[in-house]
Simulated scan of single mutants.
Amino acid sequence: MSVFAAVFAAFAHLVEHLADLIQPLFGATAAAAAIVLFTALVRLLVHPLSRAAARGQRARTALQPKIAALRAKHAGNPERLRKAVLELHTEEKVSPLSGLLPGLCQLPAFFLLYHLFSNTTIGGETNGLLSHRLFAAPLGDRWADALGGGGVFGPAGLVYGGLFVLVAGVAFFNYRRTKRLMATSDPVAAASNGEQVPGLGALTKVMPFMSFFTLVTVAVVPLAAALYVVTSTTWSAVERAALYR
């Protein structure tokens, strides 16, 4: 057995064990509840990075007047401006990439769930996790399977409908919040010559709608991975509202 296969097998046993522990409370949906609990644990572990990202965002906001002064000072020298901005970030101990770390650290957990519920065998054994369900929807199925098995208003289709409503609500909350943040800041950066960076204006307009892309993810990945996305996205909305208030 390869190292990756061993890791996937160990993770499968962990999820099954956790599901067995909480089965008296959640019954047939114990595996789905275990995935939600696993997601919450991952987010708790990543929370220090999220707090650091929030501090970094506040620090970057505080640096904007100094960056504007550097932009004016080195208006005719883009390379000198780039170095000056990097030196400023280093001096103030501010990392432009700190906001990416919480999301990057969650990718392995998402990949584990996606792999587990996309394969009929794990470590040479039948994948028993595929027999678990969230109400009427198998955790290894996708929205297309639900549509083919009973349509939008079939038992599995209604489960997905509930997830879509929840994700849409969280996405709308994030959309409103992003619009408010962008309205109180200067979202359009300028190049060293004072002109707007090409393409940044269009990106700024699209940015508030990015949270709605989660709906596409929920529709195309296995239901178990979709549960991870829904739980993590909801956690992020609450966490960011608290950290960036």
Rank of each mutant, 00 (worst) to 15 (best):
A59M: 01
A32G: 09
A30M: 11
D20R: 15
D20P: 05
V152P: 00
D141N: 14
R82T: 09
R80Q: 13
H132N: 12
V216A: 15
V216K: 02
E125V: 09
L18S: 14
S98P: 01
R71T: 15
L163N: 13
R58V: 10
A237S: 05
F38I: 14
G154K: 08
A84G: 07
A241Y: 03
V36N: 12
V7C: 13
I122H: 00
H89M: 04
I122E: 00
Q106Y: 02
K83P: 00
L166K: 04
V7Q: 14
F117H: 06
V197M: 13
A10Y: 10
P65S: 09
T231P: 04
S95Q: 04
A72M: 11
L97P: 01
W235I: 05
V3M: 13
P102N: 06
K73V: 01
G161V: 06
L134Y: 02
R51Q: 10
A31L: 15
P24M: 08
K205H: 03
A241N: 03
R55H: 14
A183G: 08
C105W: 15
F38G: 15
L134C: 05
L116C: 13
F209Q: 04
E91L: 05
I22S: 11
V216S: 10
G199Y: 05
E195H: 12
G27N: 04
A189D: 11
L112R: 06
R55M: 08
L223N: 11
N77G: 02
G161Q: 11
Q106T: 08
L113V: 11
T90G: 08
T184E: 15
G199I: 08
V3P: 00
T61L: 13
L63P: 12
F26N: 09
A84V: 07
A32F: 08
L147F: 10
V230K: 07
S236E: 05
A53N: 09
V152T: 12
L81P: 06
I122S: 00
P78G: 07
H89S: 00
L41Y: 05
T178Q: 12
T204H: 03
L37E: 08
S185P: 03
A28E: 15
R82N: 11
A9P: 02
A156Y: 02
